[in-house]
Design a binder for these strands. Sequence first.
RNA 1: GGGCGCUUAGCUCAGUUGGUUUAGAGCACCUCGUUUACACCGAGGGGGUCGGGGGUUCGAAUCCCUCAGCGCCCACCA
Length: 875
Amino acid sequence: MQISPKYKHIEIEKKWYSYWMKNELFKSIPNDKEPFTIVIPPPNVTGLLHMGHMLNNTLQDILVRRARMLGKNACWVPGTDHASIATEAKVVENLKKKGISKDDISRDEFLKYAWDWTDEYGGGILDQLKKLGCSCDWDRTKFTLDDDMYESVIIAFETLHEKGLIYRGNRMINWDPEAKTTVSDEEVNYVEEDSSLYYIKYLIEDSDIDLQIATTRPETLFGDTAICVNPNDDRYKEIIGKNAIVPICNRRVPIISDPYVDLEFGTGCLKVTPAHDINDYNLGIKHNLETIDIFNEDAELNSNGMHYEGKDRFIVRKEIEAELKKNDLLIKKENYLHNVGRSERTNAVIEPRLSKQWFLKMDDITKPAIENVLKKDNIKFFPGKFKSTYKHWLENIKDWNISRQLSWGHQIPVFYYGNNDDYVVAINKKEALKKINYNSDNKYSEDDLTQDNDVLDTWFSSWLWPISVFDGIRNPNNDEINYYYPTQDLVTGPDIIFFWVARMIISGYEFRNEKPFSNVYFTGIVRDKLRRKMSKQLGNSPDAIKLIEEYGADSVRVGLMLSSAAGNDLLFDESLCQQGKNFTNKLWNALKLINGWEVDDKKSQPVENKLAINWYNNKFNKTLDLIDKNFNNYRISDVLMSSYRLIWDDFCSWLLEILKPNYGEKIDKESKTELIKLLEKNLKILHPFMPFLTEEIYHNIPHTNTSDALTISSWPANEKYSSSIVDEFEITKEIISNIRNYRKEKNISFKTSLNLYYLPNGNNLSNIEIIKKIAIIDKLEESTKEKFDVVTSFLIKKFEFFIPLEEGFDKDKEINKLTKELDYYRSFLKSVEIKLKNENFVKNAPKNIIEKEKQKIKDSKQKIESITKSIEELT
RNA sequence: GGGCGCUUAGCUCAGUUGGUUUAGAGCACCUCGUUUACACCGAGGGGGUCGGGGGUUCGAAUCCCUCAGCGCCCACCA
C-alpha cells in the first residue's frame, strides 16, 4: 500500500466527511440503546463561524464522538437562532443602504426583506461546522422560526398565560433608542464614562432660599415632578412640604423627603424624574408623584420639552446648559466619572422609559430550578463555581420582560378587540375569534382584531430549545421527546448563564417537570495572547475557515483543546494550530514508518520487542484509565494532553524505536501484528479530537474491528494493567537517559559503540530481569558487555552502571561532580535523620510515612557509600 | 457597594481528602545532532524560596487569619 509522503488534509477531510454523511453515521433515531443527546447552542442564523464557535463546537463534537464510540445512541441536534434584535438590525441597515426606511414599509414587507436576507446568508455557519468535522445529525437541523418551532413558542406563551404567569404591565424598562426596542437588564452593559455633574439653582416658592441640585442629566428637568431630600438632613428640614420651581419650565413641584437620598452626595438634594430613572420611578410610586414622559422613542424631546421639542437628548443637554448659564441658574459644573448603561447590540445609551410591556412572573416557576440544581445537585456544572453565579441570579430574580418592539421574531399571540384593554391569547386570528365570540355572541369579525405588534424576546424561544427540537411542546408525549429528553450535556459560555442556561432549566421543569440536561460545560472566552477579547474592531480575530484550510481541521481542534480547561479563557495564538499540525505530522509519519516495515515470517520475536509491547500495553491501559476518569470530569484538555504524550513520547519515541528493525533487517510477524493493534487503539482514543486523520490512518492499516469506519468503532475497553511493569520500564528509560547524558557530556557520537557493564548492587532482582533490561539497552545504545576499567558510575534505583575510561577524560572534573553529589546526599541524610529523631513525628505520623523515611535513610546511605567508592577509585 | 474566584517555571496551566528525597506538564529557551518515519524532527539541559506576612500541625503549594495585586458577576448613588 503506497502512502502519500505528506498528509493532505484538504482532500482527506473532504473525503471522510462525505463518507460519514453518505453512510449516515451521524444519524440518530430512537432505539433500545442508551441515548446521548446534545442540543447545539444555536448560532445566529446569519452569523459566521468565529473562534468561540470553534471552541464550543469542537468540545461538543469530542463528547458526542466519544459517546458514539462507547456504544451510545449519539444525537447531536444542530440548528440556528433567528436572533431577533441582531438580525433585524442587520436587515434595517441593509435597507438603509437601499434607501428604504423601516418606518416607511409595512410589517409584512419588512418581514419579506428579512426572510430574503435569511435565505441568502442564513445557515452558512452550519456548513462551516461541517468543515470543522462536527458530527451532527443534519437531518434534524432546526431554525427557531420554522413553523413547528414558531408554534411551540406560541403554545408556551398561551400555556403560561393561562396559568396567570404572563401579564401586561406598565414598567420602567431599558429602552434602546437606536433599535427602538426594549432590551433586558442582561443586555445592558454599564461602562464608566467621563461626564459632568451640573449644579442647578431651583427657587423655592414663598422663600428667599434657593436650592442647589446636582444632576448628570439637566435635560430631564422637564420631567421633574418633585424635589427630594433626606428627612434627617438639617439643612433642608425647614423647606420640606414647600414647593420648588423647576427652572425653564417654571413648574411648581413639591419638596418631599425620603431616606433614599444620600446626604453626602452632591448637595443632598435630588430632583425626581419618575419617567426617566428607575429610582425616581420607585420614589414616584411611593410618594404618589406625577409622571411626565419627556422623550419620544428616538430619545428626542417631545412636546413636554417645550422649545427643545424634536431635539436629541444630548444636544438638549448642551443647549440647556447654555440656557441655564444665561439665566444665572447654573451654579457650577464638575467633572464626574459615571456609569453609563449602553445597549449590548447597538451601543446606544439606554434610556429608562416607562412602557407597557409583557412580563413573565418568575418567582414561582424558578423554584424547581433552585431546588433541583442547588439543593439536589441534579445538574452538574463544570467548573462548579458557576453554581454560585446561578444561585445569586435566581434568588434575586425579577419578572422577565418578554416583549420586544421588533418585527423579526415570534409575534406576540395577543389579539386586541373592542376596548383597548380587551384581548385574547391565541395562536392565530381564527382561534382568537373563536375565543372571543364564545363569550360574547359572535359580535366580532376578524377585521375587529388587531394583533399585538411586538415580538417575543429571542430567549423566549431559545429557553424551550431542548424541548422544542423534539417537538415536546406541541406533542408532550411523542416518542422522540420521551427518548431524548433530558439531554446529557450542554456546552456553552458562562456569559449566557442567565440568558439561556438558567432559563432552559426553568422551562425544563415548567414544561416537562424534568431537567433539560445533566451536565453543563462552560467554555472560556477566546482571547488573543494579549488577553484581549477577539473583536472585529481590533482585527485580532483570525478567520476560522482560513485556519482550517491552512492547518487542517484536526490541527485546529487540537490547538484549541490543548489549552482550554473548562471555564478558563483561551489565549489563542496561531502557534497552537501549528502545534496541532506538528502532531498530525508525527502520527502520519508513524504510519509511514510502520507500514514500511517488511515482515519476516520465520523470524522469532526478540525479547526486547516482547518486553516493549507488553510495557506499552500496560502503559496504554494505565493512561486509558486516566483518560476515562478525566472525560467523566470534563477535563478535556487533560485528556488530550495524556493522549498526546502517550503517543508522542511512549509510542513513537520509545516503542517504535525499540521495535524498529536494524538496517537491512525485517520485523517479526508477531511484533508487527501486535504493534498494529496498539496503533489502532491509539487512533481510537484520538478520534474524538482528530476525527479525519485517525479515520484516514485507520483505513491504511489492517484494522481488527469489523466496522468499516473508525467513527462507529468501539472505544477501547478498560483493561487491567500492572503498575509495576510500567514503573520498571521507567527504570530502563532512566538508564538509557543516563547513558545518553554520558555520551553528551563526553561528546561521544551515537554511532560509536559504548562499552559498559553493570552489576546488581545489593538488590534482590534475579539476573534474568537484569538481562531483560540489557536487551533493550543494547538495542538502543549498541553497547557491548566487555569489562573495562571503571571510571564512573551511576546508581539507578538498585542498579549500578559503570562506564569505562575514554580518551581525554577529565579526572578532576569528575571528582568535583561526585563530591557535590556526595554533599547533597549527606545533608539530605542529615535532614531525614533529624526528622526521625523527632519524637512527635515518630509518635504522630502514620506508619507508612515513617517506613518511607527509613527507606530514605537506607537509600541515601547506600548512595553515599557508592559515591565515596567511586571517588576513592579515581584518586 | 454586594458576591464569587484567582496569584505555582519566561508564557499558559496541573497539583485529587495536608505526608515518596530535588513541586509537574505543554509551549518557549539553551546545547548538540543532515543516525534512511518525521528538522512540522531527535537527544540532552537550564529554569520555581508555590504573591507577602502570621497561625494550626510531627509535617503546609494544599487548612485558618491577614495584607497586597488581579479577574469576573450582580447592583447602578442623582
